[in-house]
Simulated scan of single mutants.
Amino acid sequence: MSKLLLNLRNVPDDEADDVRAMLDANRIAFYETVPSRWGISSGGIWVTEDAAIVEAKRLMAIYQQERQARVRAEYDAARRDGTAETFWTVLRAEPARVALTVLGILVMLGLVALPIVLLRG
C-alpha cells in the first residue's frame, strides 16, 4: 500500500524537484498526485512500496536537514547584505497588496467585534 512521503501544500517547486530527484537517484518507486482544482487537496508524493518507505523517510530527513542549513545560511547572508525581504521592502514593492491585506484584517476584526458591539447597544 502506498504511503505519503511529502504533502505538497506550500512546498516550493525547487524542493519538490529535489525530492523527486532524490527518490529517482535512490531508485525508490513513487508517484505524484496533483492538487485539486478547488484547492481542497494539495497533492503529494507517494512511495509505492511498503519496504521502501523507511529508506525514503530516512533520506527525506537527511535532505531536510541539509536544506534547512542551506536556506538558513542564504537568509543570514541576505540579512547581512541588506537584501532580505522585510515588511518595508514589500510595502515599497507592492503597496496595493499590503493595503488590501491590512484592509482584510480590519474587516475580519470588525466582524469578530460586531456581536459584542450589537449586544452592548
Rank of each mutant, 00 (worst) to 15 (best):
A84E: 12
R70D: 12
V11H: 04
I40H: 09
T33V: 10
N7E: 15
L59V: 11
G82I: 02
E15R: 04
R80W: 03
D24M: 15
A73E: 15
A84R: 01
R79K: 14
I53N: 00
G39T: 02
D24I: 13
D81Q: 09
R9D: 14
A16Q: 09
D13R: 13
R20K: 13
D24R: 14
T48F: 06
D81F: 03
E74R: 05
R58T: 15
F30R: 03
F30V: 02
A25M: 11
V71L: 13
E15V: 10
R80N: 01
P12V: 02
L8F: 05
Y75V: 14
G43E: 02
R72D: 10
A61R: 08
L23I: 07
A77L: 10
E55V: 08
E32Q: 15
R79W: 11
M60R: 05
G82E: 02
Y31H: 14
A84S: 06
A84I: 08
V34G: 04
L8P: 01
D81T: 08
V34N: 10
E32M: 14
D14R: 00
D81E: 12
D18L: 09
A21P: 04
R58F: 04
R72F: 09
N10P: 05
A29T: 14
V34I: 07
L8D: 05
V71M: 03
Q65S: 11
R67I: 07
A25C: 01
A16I: 06
Q64E: 11
E66V: 09
N10R: 06
V54K: 14
T33N: 09
F30L: 05
R20T: 09
D81H: 00
E66G: 06
L23Y: 05
S36N: 07
D81Y: 01
L59Q: 06
G43P: 01
T33F: 03
W38T: 13
R72M: 13
N26K: 12
V71Q: 06
A77E: 13
I45S: 00
D14P: 06
R37S: 10
R27Y: 13
A78C: 07
D14I: 12
N10D: 13
D17W: 05
G44V: 04
D76N: 12
I28M: 06
A51P: 02
L8Q: 12
T33H: 04
A51I: 11
A51E: 15
R20V: 04
S41W: 00
E55L: 07
V71S: 10
M60G: 04
N10E: 11
G39M: 01
V11Q: 08
V54L: 06
I62R: 12
R70M: 06
N26I: 12
I28A: 03
Q64T: 06
R79T: 10
E55P: 01
T33Q: 07
R37N: 10
R27E: 15
V19P: 00
Q64L: 13
E49N: 03
R20G: 08
T48A: 11
D24G: 14
A56N: 04
E55A: 12
R79I: 09
R9T: 11
R80H: 04
R79Y: 05
Q64N: 13
R20L: 08
N10F: 09
Y63G: 01
V34M: 10
G39E: 01
W38R: 15
R72I: 10
M60E: 13
E15L: 05
T33A: 08
N26F: 02
G43N: 00
A77V: 11
